[in-house]
């Protein structure tokens, strides 16, 4: 289909949890500047796939390539250091900590000089300024106080903070697992706008979603996941939502040509 090298790809990923096979030889490709949506039934293994790509799960077998080079992520911070940021389905925000603390959790900035080096003092002021800037960038500054605890925010606001965090630090790839699943219609809308905003900066995005209208609105390609594998990749311009749902549920088998996509 294209000669462009994928920025992030995976081949033959396997992961078992006891008897459950969460990934059964899953392949994946994400191309520069694109949004690839991953759809699939509940339990198809979408979350496990993206957790493997983000270092939260170490696959039993298989390979992951970032910009053509094989990578071995052992922990989430390995992937983060490589420029892959993830908004997990369960958000991965720490409720009692502030917005600014959450944005920098696990990568705090220290003060310059002796205070930072010897006394390990964090640079609260600089982190807060940065966090405020990033939220402003995404038009999220209706969130007033950068020091307020995340638990005091609404679901949409939290999602906004999580997306802002990913956008702020994701230099290569941003992964969003069901970012609108827990949100009301209006808040979903706002988060979709955020996603488009992030894409317009040229950062490729993996979007896992159950919501066909959202997927067809945003995605450049749709990766259909079924029974722990990539079933096919479809072009949203050439297929309808009911095609996608039929592939996803197994009601319809894709053409062989699609499987190679």
């Amino acid at each position: 289909m294209t000669n462009v090298q994928p920025i992030l790809s995976a081949r033959g990923l396997m992961k078992r949890y006891g008897q459950v096979v969460a990934m059964n030889g899953a392949d994946f490709d994400l191309y520069p500047g694109e949004i690839t949506a991953v759809i699939g039934d509940n339990g198809a293994g979408k979350s496990t796939l993206i957790k493997a790509l983000s270092g939260a799960v170490v696959p039993d077998h298989g390979q992951i390539f970032l910009e053509g080079k094989e990578v071995h992520f052992k922990r989430p911070d390995d992937a983060r250091n490589a420029g892959i940021e993830t908004v997990y389905q369960n958000l991965a925000l720490s409720p009692a900590l502030s917005i600014a603390d959450n944005m920098f959790l696990g990568r705090e900035w220290r003060k310059p000089g002796v205070m930072g080096k010897v006394f390990r003092k964090m640079d609260h002021a600089r982190m807060q300024d940065f966090a405020r800037d990033k939220l402003n960038d995404l038009g999220l500054m209706t969130i007033q106080n950068i020091n307020q605890a995340v638990e005091t925010l609404s679901g949409g606001q939290r999602q906004g903070v999580a997306v802002a965090r990913a956008a702020a630090f994701g230099s290569k790839v941003i992964i969003l697992d069901e970012p609108t699943a827990a949100l009301g219609v209006k808040e979903s809308r706002r988060v979709l706008e955020l996603i488009q905003d992030v894409r317009s900066r040229g950062i490729p995005i993996i979007l896992i979603s159950h919501n066909m209208p959202h997927v067809f609105e945003l995605a450049d390609r749709i990766h259909v996941h079924r029974l722990g594998q990539r079933l096919c990749v479809i072009d949203p311009k050439k297929h309808t939502m009911s095609d996608a749902v039929a592939y996803m549920t197994g009601a319809k088998e894709p053409d062989t040509e699609l499987e190679l996509a």
Partner: peptide, 15 residues
Amino acid sequence: MAIGDDPDAAMLSGI
């Protein structure tokens, strides 16, 4: 604090 608050979130944040 983050570990006591939500260990899964802390792990996914790279702690």
